[in-house]
Design a protein around this nucleic acid. Structure first.
Length: 751
DNA sequence: TACACATTATTTTTT
DNA sequence: ATAATGTGTA
């Protein structure tokens, strides 16, 4: 096999270089293959690099950047490099520096879309009615604002949970739509059809709070860029960025795409922009978050004259793993199409294990991990990749039980812990008195005798005089209708905040932070707390203050917290198995990868299929592809016949993705025996659909045909749309389509 | 206001 | 099953 013809990059006239031109072929270009080299050297004009899994994408990206810098085509400050995660940004920074001989590269615009947009917005906040020290709200804050607004609009927050409203509004923002761009009735059924109104009210509220949510960072920049009155702002950035580089392009949403487009175009000039987007349509797994695969599929049309380079030689996985992954993803329609190939060994077949329940699953996987470890493989080179967070617990429990070191990625985040959020709220009020949300959070934490009614009173005062809650504290002190005890509490708060604010800049910010936590009584509150978590919380607070030392100032730290929601690497230097979600595993690789929970409904997720039909299913399939291609040598897929869901046992059917695996590269073993021999209490159901069990073990099971009406114990009545062996695809009356074993249903009509 | 008790939703995936 | 809410009583 041969790599796809390396498309010759078209040569553009060299732009004037800030430094003198270099001469010899730089050392960092060694060891790249032909296609990779082409991708690195095609620095001018629009380039799309389709990088299959394990084809050396990061290497190409970093080398390309080094190349631009090494050749003095641009100053670092003239490069815009967008990554998907902060971690990826960090990695890029380190690798480019090391390619350039360990020289730190300073001053380039490298970061996530959100981090970069925030940086721009801080400089131009006044153009959208904010000040440059605006607060970036996290999920929790957003939800609270939205809840207040929904309630004010008379919405039943039970029926339309703020979480859902927020998701819908975020989706609008992902598509670059402001309230005025949304039609009155576009909100659908949510919130009694008033979603558009709520959205508008929400945006107004954020502006009063001098706050932004994540989507706003981009949305506000779009608003600024598009206003002819701000042409100079846009021009400024356009002229600055000579080279634009985007990683994980398949996961960009519309707003991000438009932001890029605006930056890439030149004023009064049709010179094609030097924009390089790297991605893989087969690894697009964030559609639910507004990502548009269309962006990558449309690249050539968006950027005429674009060069497309395909990286197809895989350096990561064995032939078997690659074949398995390719076999699954081949079932998707509408791909750009790529053929991964590798010169590697066949390697071991991909193991597929059908097991009784989640305990067996955890046991089988942990046994294998220990076997690998005995063969000398480090635990850090192994990972359990789950579809959903709740699957993690079974593995944690098992690993604890047998004393296997592990680390969970993506669990509850440090900055989402209650005590951390409380502490941050104090800091936020100090920095940003208008931050009502933060003040509300801590106004009675620790208890100060400010209850619901006192808070309502304060709200009332604030609204009457158009003040922030913080400023209303002062008024309340002299307000005669306020009870004296409450008045005193308000007064003390106001004084405290004033004093702390006065101390800003007079002492190291870590010291100030510690002082705030002490003087507010917050630390004392946890010291007095006798619950078992209290010591841990105090420890976290200490860690928070220590962590601040790395930052220049309190605001710089708060910015970091808002945007860099990355997990603090717990026991990072310990040799441990990684447990994480499939989403979290994107971009990583491991020697051995364990893929549990391949059951229809869990993976592919029922919800994905119900909500987005075939599109949802295809995204799930891409997730399967991502999972498999994380593995270098060993991949093991497990599926379980019984899974505990919400506390009770639910039967499951092996994932349809298992059927899609090419038989030749699979080692398929079912450890299932007829149910009766293991669980006398289990219902009369047959496992004959599973491989290697004796078929026709239950002659009682009737034969079904498509079109037949059936009844299912838990899902109700439905109609069979498809029969494949003992597996039935049934469309239930609630509208959901599920795959269930024939043994679980009974016929309603005798067709 | 605070605590004990009852009820309820939770299971996608995250910058 | 569990954690997070809400409700009622002291």
């Amino acid at each position: 096999m041969v790599a796809s013809k390396p498309t010759t990059p078209h040569v553009m006239p060299m732009i004037s270089s800030p430094f003198s031109s270099p001469a010899a072929e730089p050392p960092y270009l060694a060891n790249l293959n032909e296609v990779q080299l082409a991708a690195v050297k095609a620095t001018e004009g629009p380039v799309l690099v389709l990088a299959g899994a394990g084809t050396g994408k990061t290497r190409v990206l970093t080398t390309r950047l080094s190349h631009i810098l090494y050749q003095n085509k641009a100053f670092p400050s003239q490069i815009l490099a967008v990554t998907f995660t902060n971690k990826a940004a960090g990695e890029m920074r380190t690798r480019v520096s090391s390619l350039l001989g360990d020289q730190p590269v300073e001053g380039w615009w490298l970061g996530t879309f959100h981090a970069l947009a925030a940086r721009m917005l801080r400089r131009n906040a006044d153009l959208v009615g904010l000040t440059s020290d605006f607060t970036i709200l996290d999920d929790d804050d957003q939800m609270r604002v939205l809840k207040q607004i929904a309630e004010a609009e008379g919405i039943d927050v039970k029926k339309s949970p703020p979480k859902l409203l927020l998701a819908l509004i975020s989706r609008w923002k992902d598509r670059g739509m402001r309230p005025q761009d949304v039609g009155r009735d576009e909100g659908g059924l949510a919130a009694d059809g008033k979603l558009a109104t709520i959205y508008a009210a929400y945006q107004n509220r954020l502006r009063t709070l001098n706050a932004c949510d994540f989507g706003d960072l981009l949305l506000h920049m779009l608003t600024i860029f598009r206003d002819p009155a701000n042409q100079d702002v846009l021009s400024g950035y356009r002229n600055r960025f000579r080279y634009i580089l985007v990683d994980e392009y398949q996961d960009t949403n519309v707003a991000q795409y438009m932001w890029l487009r605006l930056l890439a175009q030149r004023d009064n000039d049709d010179t094609p922009p030097n924009i390089c987007c790297v991605g893989d349509d087969d690894q697009s797994i964030y559609g639910w978050r507004g990502a548009e695969v269309g962006n990558i599929l449309r690249f050539e049309r968006d950027f005429p004259g674009a060069v497309i380079i395909r990286l197809e030689q895989n350096y990561r996985s064995t032939q078997s793993i690659l074949a398995a992954a390719s076999g699954v993803i081949a079932h998707n329609q509408g791909r750009l199409g790529k053929t991964l190939w590798s010169q590697g060994d066949m390697g071991e077949k991909v193991r597929v294990r059908l097991l009784w329940d989640s305990d067996a699953e955890a046991r089988v996987i942990s046994d294998d991990i220990e076997a690998q470890r005995r063969q000398g493989r480090p635990l850090s080179d192994m990972a359990v990749l789950v579809r959903a967070g709740f699957q993690m617990r079974a593995f944690e429990e098992r690993f604890v039980q047998i004393g296997l070191p592990y680390r969970v990625i993506g669990g509850p985040r440090f900055y989402e812990r209650q005590e951390i959020r409380d502490a941050l709220a104090y800091f936020r009020v100090v920095m940003q008195p208008a931050d009502d949300l933060a003040l509300e959070r801590i106004i009675n934490t620790p208890k100060r005798g400010i209850g619901d009614s006192a808070l309502q009173n304060l709200h009332f005062l604030a609204r009457a005089r158009s003040l922030s809650l913080h400023d209303a504290l002062q008024d309340a002190m002299i307000d005669s209708t306020t009870r004296p005890a409450v008045r005193a509490a308000f007064g003390q708060m106001a004084n405290n905040f004033a004093r702390w604010r006065g101390l800003l800049g007079t002492m190291p910010h870590t010291e100030l932070a510690a002082q705030i936590l002490d003087e507010s009584g917050y630390t004392a509150m946890w010291q007095a707390d006798k619950t078992p978590e209290a010591p841990g919380r105090l420890e976290n607070l200490r860690e928070l203050v220590n962590g601040m030392a790395e930052f220049e100032s309190l605001p710089a730290f708060l910015e970091h917290v808002a945007l860099v929601m990355e997990n603090n690497a717990q026991n990072a230097n310990q040799d441990a198995v990684t447990i994480m979600t499939l989403h979290g595993a994107k971009g990583l690789e491991f020697g051995s990868v364990y893929l549990p929970g391949w059951e229809d409904g869990l993976f592919p997720s029922q919800r994905a299929m119900d909500e987005n039909g075939i599109t949802g299913l295809e995204e799930e399939r891409r997730l399967a592809y991502v999972g498999l291609t994380r593995a270098r040598h060993i991949a093991m897929i497990t599926s379980v016949a019984n899974r505990r869901t919400y506390g009770n046992w639910v039967q499951a059917v092996p994932s349809r993705f298992i059927d899609e695996l090419p038989k030749g590269v699979i080692d398929y073993v079912s450890e299932l025996r007829p149910a009766s021999s293991i669980r006398p209490s289990a219902p009369q159901w047959s496992l004959s659909g599973f491989a290697n069990s004796q078929s026709s073990s239950s002659p009682a099971t009737p034969q079904y045909v498509a079109g037949q009406h059936i009844r299912h114990d838990s899902f109700g009545d439905g109609r069979i749309v498809h029969v494949s062996g003992q597996k039935l695809d049934i469309l239930f009356e609630d509208g959901s389509q599920r795959r269930v074993m024939a043994g679980f249903v009974e016929p309603l009509d005798s067709a």
